[in-house]
Write a protein that binds this DNA or RNA. Structure first.
Lengths: 334, 334
DNA sequence: CTGAAAGCGCTTACAG
DNA sequence: CTGAAAGCGCTTACAG
């Protein structure tokens, strides 16, 4: 039998109101009273009924997070950052998956009902269209976007255009003129503004240097290890393949690196490779990359969330730095 | 203003009891009535108050998961598997971190209060001692353990002894006699029964082959990329280093692989390396390993949880298969 | 098939 | 500093 607040009140010889106040550390409770109540609660193994306190007006002290996948490096880092901040603040984290269009739709239709369940929602790579955004906002939830800019929603992200521009420019600066890009064909996310921005940045860097862009240098494959393998296979079939490739994720780049080695393509002798993320294994692999601090992105987003809506930061889009890290996988063409 | 069940009842011209029954798809509601209620609820944007329905006796339809880390490959796979099953069943997932002893203690002291918040708890690498286990059980939560055997708690795991035995035997069978093991020094988890079992399996395989075990072949380092680097550094300093090493995780093995390359140690020529897990990058890296289906571990555990306590499987310890995968990183010594 | 009513266990003004 | 009481919004026997 669970002990209720009434049990504690009776045992401690006070009213339930006093128990409630004492246990939640509110003012205007005599120290002796509080001590007695706390001791009694402890003895009875009392803890408030979650539903009851919610109904009576308590906060859920729970934040939701929705992301497409949980089995990839990026999400795991975001999650770790978020979790760290939330748990330190005594908040819980509930996670939702929205990978397929169907799941996204299901999630959106639930969004409204989450209002009594969570205090806020962190969205990761959700890329809502106008209608979907409207539904999210109408849910009444506090929203913070991670890794993507969403109109009317505070967000933390990076400048994908600029990062891609600099990655490409690095390849240009060390002398490459035939430069490919891989990862645009992210099958399951039909339109990712993030990837679109990176492609734009890549194109701008080429144009800036007076280099022309070749359609066949736009390599297919998803942002995964096997996607990287696929991209390299595609490249290997070309008569005049690029001498450098910008992979839009490190996982993909490492898949590419491995496949290149397998096919006898020397990196960076025959082919320079630059990735994106600074994955845990990037340094060990000697992979040049654009480093983003994903875990920090998560923890900062969680902090923003916790300071909402009190210090309503008024729809701020914060940009996190991205750093070019040159390692062994990029070198001048020979 | 949130719409309440009363609003719906009034608008639909029925009692709140009928609304409640109609919306939850219970029997004994006339089709026409149900349709009218559903339509009204829809129109008013009604969704039940979570706290109210909990208090009135509803289930939380939420499962908790506690794990030490969320930024490692293993946990991300478990999580993805769990999430997949739970969301398909209409359940939510709330995650708790328990990495440091302090966090574990905090979590345990909360466990009891989670009873009104979640319907069950999945525990990953928690390794409770007798007292801690007692507290978990007394919390009254439905428990399922993942990756570890916990007395009196249904679990899904692998046979770590056997897997390590076979990994080591593989190295022996291809001709190695000086065989090291790396990863035992998992700093933050003072005593991991999982790693202890693997060390036992390693020792048993050596003993079985009449090989003697050298203390200096027990390499230090955590199960991470940098731990692998550290282990290889330690090995490189030895006068008569092992010719093969069993790394207790693929992430560590890949760190070791990279460091070996950096130091000019040829793999598998000078050194054979076998890992554990079959990480996404293991195949690309050509890493021989002991494959465990971590994602499946998660999804099966979630299924077990959902079938509790109805079909109380009566404290069953299920073992998942582990498969030796031989790739390029292991070869006979030269 | 439907409704009136009790009850779930808290929190929060309102008094004192 | 403390208590009595209303109220939060549901679900579930119990009647009919």
């Amino acid at each position: 039998m669970r002990a209720t607040i009434e049990d504690v009140a009776r045992e401690a010889g006070v009213s339930v109101a006093t128990v409630s106040r004492a246990l939640r550390g509110m003012d205007h409770v005599a120290e002796v009273t509080r001590d007695r109540v706390v001791a009694t609660a402890q003895r009875l193994g009392y803890s408030p009924h979650f539903g009851a306190s919610l109904l009576a007006g308590g906060a859920t002290r729970t934040i939701g997070l929705v992301a497409p996948y949980y089995d990839i490096w990026y999400t795991s880092q975001v999650l770790a950052g978020v979790e760290e901040v939330l748990s330190a603040a005594g908040h819980d984290l509930v996670i939702y998956a929205a990978d397929t269009p169907l799941n996204r739709e299901q999630f959106l239709s639930r969004a409204h009902s989450l209002q009594t369940r969570i205090d806020g929602l962190l969205i990761v790579d959700f890329f809502p269209d106008v209608g979907q955004l409207q539904r999210l906002i109408e849910s009444g939830l506090n929203l913070v976007a991670i890794g993507e800019d969403v109109a009317r929603v505070p967000s933390l992200s990076i400048d994908n255009f600029d990062a891609a521009f600099r990655a490409t420019r690095h390849l240009i600066e060390i002398g490459h003129t035939r430069i490919g890009i891989a990862g645009g064909q992210q099958v399951s996310l039909d339109t990712s503004p993030v990837l679109a921005s990176r492609i734009d940045g890549y194109q701008a860097a080429l144009a800036d240097a007076g280099l022309k862009e070749l359609a066949e240098y736009r390599l297919t494959g998803m942002l995964t290890v096997s996607g990287g393998r696929q991209a390299i296979d595609e490249l290997a079939d070309q008569l005049e393949p690029p001498t450098a490739v910008f992979f839009m994720s490190d996982e993909m780049a490492m898949g590419g690196l491995a496949q290149a080695r397998r096919l006898g393509i020397d990196v960076p002798g025959d082919l320079s490779i630059i990735g994106f993320d600074d994955h845990d294994l990037a340094e060990a692999t000697g992979l040049s990359t654009m480093r983003q601090r994903v875990r920090r992105l998560g923890s900062l987003a969680a902090e923003r969330m916790l300071s909402l809506p009190d210090h309503d930061s008024g729809r701020v889009h914060e940009l996190m730095p991205v750093e070019l890290v040159v390692r062994d996988s990029t070198a001048p063409p020979r």
